[in-house]
């Protein structure tokens, strides 16, 4: 094999592997990426049961309950509209998890319509907010605007 041919073969080999990797990655990303849902989206167009997704919203005040085993908690996540998704989570709650604040739950929808969370992401401190929660304040503002404009039309 001449040097030129060898270089060509090497370039082709590298290209095939890289394009293969990219195609495989794109294919896997379409299937494995976990989508983010707001409660109203989850209610209107629920993901398949068992598919890994994320749910983000406000923890409804008064909904947080600890079951008798002492480690499983249930609460409701609400969104902008009158939508509420019940969530179940077994584990230690994140440090700044409180009713009335934002949360992102990672997990999957169970057959009974409850969201089974494996992991909860709450606001860590004022500098570290899960990305999906950054716009939560806008969310609240929209809510306020909706409430205050009722009856004005």
């Amino acid at each position: 094999m001449k040097a030129k041919h060898q270089r060509l073969v090497l370039v082709l080999l590298a290209l095939v592997a890289l394009v293969g990797a990219a195609l495989l990655a794109v294919y896997a990303l379409r299937n494995q990426a976990s989508y983010f849902y707001l409660p109203e989206q989850m209610q209107a167009d629920p993901p398949a049961v068992g598919q890994a997704v994320r749910l983000g919203g406000m923890v409804a005040p008064g909904s947080l309950e600890t079951l008798s085993d002492g480690i499983t908690v249930t609460f409701t996540v609400t969104g902008r509209e009158a939508s509420a998704i019940p969530v179940r989570y077994a584990g230690i709650l994140p440090d700044l998890f409180v009713e009335g604040s934002g949360v992102v739950a990672e997990g999957r929808l169970a057959a009974d319509g409850t969201f089974e969370a494996d992991n909860l992401l709450a606001k860590h401190d004022e500098n570290y907010v899960p990305r999906e929660l950054q716009e939560m304040s806008e969310h609240q503002a929209a809510e306020m605007a909706e409430e205050t404009t009722v009856g004005l039309e």
């Binding site: 896997a28 990303l29 990426a33 983010f36 890994a52």
Partner: peptide, 12 residues
């Protein structure tokens, strides 16, 4: 909005 985690990275 999506997040990509271990179910993608590990097998691929």
């Amino acid at each position: 909005r999506v997040s990509v985690g271990p179910p993608y990275f590990n097998p691929v």
